[in-house]
Simulated scan of single mutants.
Amino acid sequence: MNVSAYLRRIGLSAVDHPDRQFLSRLQENHLLHIPFENLDISLHRPIRLSLPPVYEKVVERGRGGFCYELNGLFHWLLRECGFHTTLISARVREADGSFGPEFDHLAVLVLLETPYVVDVGFGDCCRHPLPLTGDEVEDISGRYRVASKTDGEGYALQKKTEGHWVTEYRFTTLPYELQAFTSMCQHHQTSPASTFTQKKMCTIATDDGRITLTQDFLTITRDGKKQKHPVTSDRQFHDELLRYFGIKL
């Protein structure tokens, strides 16, 4: 695995000082260049939690992935760039307001002057590091913060929605190795209850919004305005996938 090639994949040319500014640039560039997608799952191609094949897929073949792949690989890059980081487990909020099990989602904790949570594997989420202090961070996708849970057990990553703070996922700062996520990674590839097995999807951040492709629609968001176009065939899906994401399956 090669740091320079990874940096080129996300539009950067060199390693900088491991501070918040460089961390923010790494995170945003990653989101602008590497899509969040579940295409291998829809094709029944097994995803192994091993960094070399993930690196080959994402960096060398120009693909994307889901949280275990993208945040696992990003964690490696951050360490190679001189950051002190750990992998953390998160429980994602379900549609009914409940939360998934432990290891439902993988994110990265970066230890600078204060700890920050960074995430390049959650789809439409904050594009910059979020401090655990509760300070708000705003970007084109919305306003975010990390709040301490009232029960004293961990934190909640929240997004302001219609004037209210809504929790996206809960997490603690306990450090884990990548292999601790193996069982839930397998679950999300195979279980009918997982959102990742229900429909194919590919989404990427853009400077002015986001582009999302599913088997049903192509949605282009620019400056908060959405244009939704029906996808009516597999051929159209593959054409749009190549056109907007540069991916040929």
Results as ranks from 00 to 15, higher is better:
213 L>A: 08
138 E>M: 11
232 T>A: 07
150 T>G: 07
126 C>R: 06
199 K>N: 13
141 S>N: 12
126 C>G: 06
161 T>A: 12
56 E>S: 09
142 G>I: 09
85 T>A: 13
90 A>D: 02
80 E>Y: 01
10 I>V: 07
234 D>N: 14
149 K>N: 12
92 V>T: 09
189 Q>K: 07
178 L>T: 08
174 L>Q: 15
26 L>C: 02
36 F>I: 04
166 V>D: 13
42 S>H: 14
86 T>D: 12
38 N>G: 06
81 C>S: 02
15 V>G: 01
68 Y>L: 12
152 G>R: 05
82 G>E: 00
203 T>M: 13
224 G>P: 05
168 E>V: 10
185 C>P: 01
2 N>D: 10
150 T>S: 14
13 S>W: 03
107 A>D: 07
23 L>M: 03
182 T>N: 15
147 A>Y: 08
119 D>L: 02
186 Q>E: 09
38 N>S: 07
139 D>W: 08
147 A>D: 12
142 G>C: 10
11 G>C: 06
141 S>C: 09
35 P>W: 09
179 Q>F: 10
172 T>I: 08
63 R>C: 03
72 G>H: 07
243 R>T: 07
42 S>W: 14
109 L>K: 05
204 I>N: 07
127 R>S: 12
136 E>N: 09
225 K>V: 13
242 L>Y: 13
112 L>N: 01
40 D>S: 13
42 S>R: 14
130 L>T: 00
202 C>T: 04
242 L>D: 11
107 A>V: 12
240 E>Q: 14
244 Y>W: 14
65 G>L: 06
51 L>R: 10
30 H>D: 06
16 D>H: 01
203 T>K: 09
23 L>P: 03
94 E>D: 10
37 E>C: 04
219 T>Q: 09
7 L>R: 04
103 F>P: 05
223 D>F: 10
112 L>W: 00
228 K>W: 02
159 K>N: 15
116 Y>Q: 11
184 M>K: 15
26 L>T: 00
52 P>M: 04
200 K>I: 12
28 E>C: 09
101 P>W: 08
135 D>F: 09
63 R>D: 03
223 D>I: 05
190 T>R: 02
1 M>W: 05
163 G>V: 12
109 L>R: 03
107 A>Y: 03
119 D>N: 05
